[in-house]
Structure formats: structure tokens, C-alpha cells
Amino acid sequence: MALISMQDVSFTYAYSEAPALTDVSLTLEERLLYGVIGVNASGKTTLCSLMRGLIPLFHPGTLTGKVEIRGRNLLEWDPAELSRAIGCVFENPFTQISGIKDTVFEEIAFGLENIGVPRDEMIERVLEVVERLGLEELIKKNPNELSGGQRQKVAFAAIVAMDADFIVIDEPTSQLDPEASDAVFEIIGDLRKRGKSIVLVEHKIDLMAQHADRIIVMKDGRVIAEGPTADIVTSGVMDEADVPRPEVTELALALQGTGKAFPSLPITRAEAFDALSSRRGG
């Protein structure tokens, strides 16, 4: 059974004239990391909201076509059950933070508390994720006093602590410094190895190329391509969608047809290194 299947799905937000999604047909399998790329307002966040049932339950509008999550029609899912099944990090950490908890520790525990996780287990899970994300210094602070980047880390930690099987993550690193971005991607990579299904919206294409199994490319509310990461990021669809390629792929493309050409287009620095290391000192 597919994790998610969408057939001819279109969605228009209430009070909006233009559709945010048009004729989207997609099948997502379990245990893979799907990257979603596209320019701003291409429909990425709407797609995420749909996958976790925020559309049409929370954001009203006109939904046509068929959406199934684990074989069950989206509209037949109980919202509470669905929110337990799917974790979600919002792009804007100011939206994600509950605003009603006095400390970061309680904020990260909030979701677990809501689903009735026993107290000892809850504390253990929160402390584990705090350590992995290096948030020790923050746990006694008030979430409202945190910087944008710190809030983003706390929002991410709260979702990791929930330990859902399917996680939708919308731009988790937009406000993070490079070291913190790497830490977040390392954890996302771990989640994938542990068999989680992940949908990740992210502009940092170099990190995406390293971690994603498959890429979904969006433009003007449509899915214009879906396929294995290496096929997608080396193809012309990246230009069509106006999204950048990995830096090493750009280099290889610039060298194509010259005496310095790569044997095949690399998408990660490790691949580029392997292709070039035998040429050193040559």
C-alpha cells in the first residue's frame, strides 16, 4: 500500500481566485525521503498541508480529485488520529511554537503530553532530542525569548520527539546557520535510516542532493517532475522550474564538452571528489 496517493488533485483556497494546486497525481511510497523543490508560491507548502490533512480540515477551500493516506481517503481520517500519524514542522517557527508553555522543555514535551505519553518516557524522549540538537542551554528559557533560529530548532525538536512514522518538514533550516543546518539534516538522515517516511521542502539543494531518495519538482501549482534525485537534479527540469542545481553539478555542466569533462554528472561533493581524485597531480 502506498503511503500517499493523489489522483488529479486540485485545490483552491477559500477567498482566492487562482488554484494553489492543479491536477496533481503522485504516489509516495513508505520509508523514502522525498524532497520537494520549486520557486516560492509554486505549491510546495500547500502540498504539505494537504498531505497532513490541514487541507481541507483547517484551511478551507475547494478540493477536487482523490487523496488517500495509507489506503484510506483523507476525508475519512479522524483529524486527531491523522495528527498522531504525521508529524509536521512549519516553515515559520513563530507559528509552530505554542505560545502557552513557559519553558523550551515543556514546549518540546507539549505534543507528547497531548497524546498521553507516560511522564518518564516523555522526559526521556525530550532529553534525548535536546541532546541530539544541542539545545541543553535553552531548555529552561521561555520560548518567546528565543531568536528565530533557536525557535526553528525547538520546533524541529518537538516533532522529532513525537517519533511519528511519517514526517512532513517544511523548510526546517531557513533561519539556521550552516552548522545547525547540517545538524538538522543529519537527524533527518537518521530518521530516514530508521525507516521513517519523510517529505521535505527545502531550498538548500546541496543538502537535498545528499539526502533525498526522490525529488518532486513543482511549478505554478503543478508537479512537473518526480523521480530519483540524481535523474532530476541533472535534468533540464531544474531550469524549467527555475531552481538551482547542486554546486558540483553546475561545475560539471560548465566543463561538459571540454577536456576537463566529468565522466558523468555528480550531484554530491563526494561523487565529484571520486571522479576527480585520480586526476590530481596529473
Binding site: 520549486g38 520557486v39 516560492n40 516553515e91 528565530g148 523548510e171 531557513s174 533561519q175 531550498h203 527555475d242 531552481v243 538551482p244
Partner: peptide, 10 residues
């Protein structure tokens, strides 16, 4: 931080 979350056209 004008580049946070910015796409290529942006």
C-alpha cells in the same frame, strides 16, 4: 537575513 527561505528568482 534577506536570503532565508528565498528562492532563485528572489
Amino acid at each position: 537575513e534577506p536570503t532565508a527561505g528565498l528562492d532563485r528568482p528572489g
